[in-house]
Amino acid sequence: MQVKREERYSLRLQVNGKRYEEQVEPRKLLSDFLREDCGLTGTHVGCEHGVCGACTVLVDGRAVRSCLILAIQAEGADITTVEGLAKDGKPHPLQEAFSECHALQCGFCTPGILMSSVEFLQTHADPGKEEIADMLSGHLCRCTGYKGIVEAVQQVADRRKEGEVRESGDPVSICSRTTPTV
């Protein structure tokens, strides 16, 4: 696509099942677009250089650092942010597990970690602690020492294995709303 810096680009995409059509500057980051143009401030920005993971959202089902891509690169995409995790007023099992396991303190890193964990659970049927820690190594949390976070993700994985996860917020069903692209 060819656009000039000062031109505005008409961007169409879906966020949390809602359609958005907005005029954006081509240089605008997806993170800024979500926060400023969509008003979805649950996606946080901690470094803007791809290390802290706070800005992670799902783009077509994949966990992506929204500070590393431009909004216009998400043309036509189906995006899920932390605001879209609960379904029909019921929290996602990861949201509950994070509270039960005291996996958050200030909560600034939490939205990004939740989104990565959603994708991770979708792609890992029976993860062990080490795999969970590996997945989390793309995120910085300076509050918790990560212990509760590993436990929370493990808890959801274990419960899912035991068939305990309720239909409403099933980590698989939340992602199956989106269609993976190549």
């Binding site: 979805l40 920005v45 605001e83 509270s99 909560g107 939490t110």
Partner: peptide
């Protein structure tokens, strides 16, 4: 926790 895990916290930004 409920507000912080659902993106409803209110931080300065």
């Amino acid at each position: 926790d409920a507000r912080l895990t659902s993106g409803q916290g209110s931080f300065i930004e």
